[in-house]
Design a protein around this nucleic acid. Structure first.
Lengths: 136, 136
DNA sequence: GTGACTGCAAATCATTTGCAGTTCG
DNA sequence: CGAACTGCAAATGATTTGCAGTCAC
């Protein structure tokens, strides 16, 4: 894998945020500094780096994939209204993860993905029915 | 919600299998008995019934959505090679689920999805590199 | 030099939607 | 009858891919 300005910019941008952006959110962010970058390149590099284990492609619900530059072992909360994803601190899951891994061993599984669902701050504020910018 | 032959056929078909079919797998299965049914109708009804809580739309990884007619509380194992989804018996997760729910309470979350990853029987047989009908 | 990579545009694939004609209650 | 539903076909949205020109090593 070669070093290219685009790849480095993508990785740097992804690592600088905790928002688990989608490919095109990243594309929009990147264009500020690098106006000529193309969406295809963003997709290609994210895919490549996730294959290489440099970034993580999240297996979240919702149609757009989200990416995470933080490779540490942690889980996510996804807002069912707007699709935003935030991290949960891993400590609370220490024991739980251990137990899940033990069950996995019996089942011959090799990894798992645990996603919580809970409204984000912004969407909690929006009372009832006033549903704005919804996602799946 | 009206009673229609299509809706009943879809629900009956979905409940008769444990394969967690995608909309178009279901469409193919249904056409045997009901050749005139359309894919759009299958999609529309699955969406509707999942909104109504009659069936479950799985939040699995992979691009195609899968559906489950079994509403009982259970988790899934997804084959990373072919995308097939199978159930895991809920007993092993009794204690784990309880602990997760307790953490969720602290975080203000209201549900969670846990997906294991493990090769299905068929894909395990395929040695190395002989990768056939892959999915995401 | 050549293989990896880029921007661009067209292609693909799953899913959704508009429409005009049925069917259910 | 009126609302909910259907089949069909066209539209949408995310992602992928083919291509011709560039860049990294």
């Amino acid at each position: 894998m070669n070093r290219t300005a685009q790849r480095e910019a993508i990785l740097k941008e992804l690592r600088s945020v905790t928002t688990h952006p989608t490919a095109d959110e990243l594309y929009t962010m990147l264009r500020v500094k690098m106006p000529a970058i193309s969406l295809g390149t963003v997709y290609r590099n994210l895919e490549q780096m996730s294959q290489a284990g440099i970034v993580r492609k999240l297996e979240t619900a919702g149609k757009q994939k989200r990416f995470d530059g933080d490779l540490s072992d942690h889980h996510h909360v996804r807002c069912p209204i707007c699709g935003a994803v935030r991290d949960v601190s891993p400590e609370a899951f220490d024991g739980i993860n251990r137990q899940i891994r033990s069950v996995m061993r019996d089942l011959g599984c090799d990894s798992f993905y645990l996603e919580l669902s809970g409204k984000c701050r912004k969407c909690s504020r929006i009372k009832e029915s006033g549903g704005e910018d919804a996602e799946a």
